[in-house]
């Protein structure tokens, strides 16, 4: 499934979220980091993501993204439980021994997703694409 950034929702802390109906009636949230944030962080070296099963809370950190210049928290847009983690962001390349995070810069909205969360409660205030873009333009 290819995600279009224009149809996604955003937090003011730069996470994007795609909400869909999951079997059993619950909603599934796919979460990643916006292209704007990834560009601002410059060269990324490490992503720390929670293991499947971990409970997360809207507005609270669920992981970390580290660049050569800074470490930033990743904030969950929803209350819920992590059901899947993008292993491409945590598995070292067998040849180099390092995790290749280029996918985050090349394809932040599809291949660069981070976690899938089964929504069990509320959510943060989410912005649509236009509002989020305006926030970024003002910050830039």
């Amino acid at each position: 499934m290819t995600l279009d950034p224009k149809t996604l929702k955003y937090t003011s802390t730069h996470e994007w979220v795609h909400l869909e109906d999951a079997p059993g009636g619950a909603k599934l949230a796919t979460v990643g980091l916006s292209a704007f944030a990834i560009e601002a962080l410059t060269d990324l070296v490490h992503v720390d993501l929670p293991p499947p099963g971990r409970a997360v809370e809207a507005g609270k950190p669920f992981g970390e993204v580290e660049s050569v210049k800074a470490v930033s928290d990743l904030y969950s847009p929803v209350d819920g439980q992590v059901v899947e983690v993008n292993s491409a962001l945590t598995t070292p390349d067998p040849k180099t021994g390092f995790v290749n995070l280029d996918v985050l810069s090349h394809d932040p909205y599809t291949a660069g997703w981070m976690v899938k969360i089964r929504v069990t409660g509320g959510q943060s205030e989410l912005l649509d694409y236009e509002t989020y873009k305006k926030q970024c333009d003002e910050a830039a």
């Binding site: 580290e66 660049s67 050569v68 210049k69 800074a70 470490v71 928290d73």
Partner: peptide, 11 residues
Amino acid sequence: QTREQHIRRDK
């Protein structure tokens, strides 16, 4: 160094 206090402050 990104995790040290002169960059990450209280975190």
